[in-house]
Nucleic acid binder design. Structure first.
Lengths: 245, 245
DNA sequence: CAACATTAGTAAACACCGTTTACCCAGCTG
DNA sequence: CAGCTGGGTAAACGGTGTTTACTAATGTTG
């Protein structure tokens, strides 16, 4: 007999459909429209039935966050599959562009996963922060790590890194090394020195910052897309560490 | 007799208290907790009574946004009053630091006003975007304008500004000039050239971006504050245009 | 196979929500 | 004084998350 019973298969199927409908509602009508009754209505059951699958609406939303991250990560992975392994910098850029494109195309999902005030979702959405452990962070760190293992970066000297950040940067570095190791990327601690980790933090701040600004429409420009500035930012950061000239 | 009748005075008073209570709920228990019934309960009336003051919860929230902006602007103005008029750059830094400090101290309010997906509040919160017309934008642009009118900036050359942005930057410049004029600051169009406006946009993107990242806790650092990086960013941007060495 | 246990679903209820309606009554105005 | 205006009320409607008790179907076991 199969390992999974008929019941288990059905359960997994409806569980999948629940989150799928929840996401559809989120995308089409915003966060507030993701209602247990609305979800239940769409799959022809009643709201309390959903409690057989999730402890509460909060828990359901958290799982939806996971799905969202997984989906975005899948899209990014597909983008990456089109690029040669050797083009390490191109792959970093691809991930950054993919993140931006995804965020602009899915503003409600971005807001839910990446821009909710901390305790708004019970706890951290998708256990993402801190440090970045979600699937996006995973991909981002992986492609970045590949650059580190193949290029010598002109990163800031240790004495230029603010002392107040040293301890936390070292913690971050350990998480980074662990993530890279689990993805089969070996990076020596000499390569991943304090300045390099610091630069990665700077990179992420700039990346996240511009994307958030665009998603939330806080640009003072009325019509134009900020894509040119995004591209320039990428080039600027890459140039800063000598990856572009 | 006074211009305002007794009734009008009472009305204005409860109106004020409504928004005050709404803000208290927002701060203490998050956006979802700002319910009409909770507000009414706190001032000892019933929920439908609120409809004598606001058309709907949406409209009330919008007004609350205005209050929030006004309050922050007031705080910034107070900070500025401690600084000499001549220290134009110091005043810009003070506004940036004040914005960051306020945002970190009021994450729910920041999320509501500065990071809600576009149509989440019926329309734009506080008519703020685009272009930046809210009270914060006003102050920010004013102190920045004062720098422009007293310093020669080494801003990007016109050919270094992405062509796709030219039209929108010119629109933004007009709004900027109007704002500055209405605050008694005369800046010639030669000074406020395309490169300068472009730099201001870059400045705002960086500023908003890091603040949003900090408020939403998306830093991969577990405990340390990113204040040192904020300070470095300010110095970096100022150095870029020759305001610091 | 029969008996039992587990489980996905239900209906009903509770407390809360935004909003509308009809009504009341104090205070101002002619 | 009569009448209007406007801030308040209670009641109701349909919606929400969640709990409870129950049913019926599935899976397991003697």
């Amino acid at each position: 007999m199969a390992d999974i019973t008929r019941r288990e298969r059905l359960r997994a199927e409806t569980e999948r459909e629940i989150r799928q409908r929840a996401r559809a509602l989120l995308i089409e009508h915003g966060r507030e429209a993701v209602t247990l009754r609305a979800i239940a209505r769409e799959l022809g059951i009643t709201a309390p039935a959903l409690y057989r699958y999730y402890d509460s609406r909060e828990h359901l939303l958290r799982q939806v966050c996971d799905d969202i991250c997984a989906d975005m990560a899948e899209g990014l992975a597909k983008d990456l599959s089109q690029l040669p392994e050797e083009d390490t910098l191109g792959r970093v850029f691809a991930v950054c562009r993919g993140f931006r494109r995804w965020a602009l195309a899915h503003p409600e999902e971005f807001a839910l996963v990446f821009a909710s005030p901390k305790p708004a979702l019970g706890f951290n959405p998708c256990d993402a922060v801190p440090p970045i452990r979600d699937q996006f962070g995973n991909i981002f760190m992986t492609v970045a790590g590949r650059v580190l293992s193949t290029h010598k970066l002109a990163t800031p000297a240790e004495q230029d890194v603010p002392k107040e950040l040293h301890d936390d940067l070292l913690v971050f570095r350990d998480a980074l090394l662990e993530t890279l190791a689990s993805n089969g990327i070996a990076v020596s601690t000499e390569v991943l020195d304090l300045g390099t980790v610091y630069f990665m933090l700077r990179f992420w701040i700039r990346l996240y910052g511009q994307v958030a600004l665009e998603v939330f429409g806080r640009s003072p420009l009325t019509t134009a897309s900020l894509e040119p500035m995004f591209e320039l930012m990428l080039r600027e950061l890459a140039t800063e560490v000598g990856l572009l000239t």
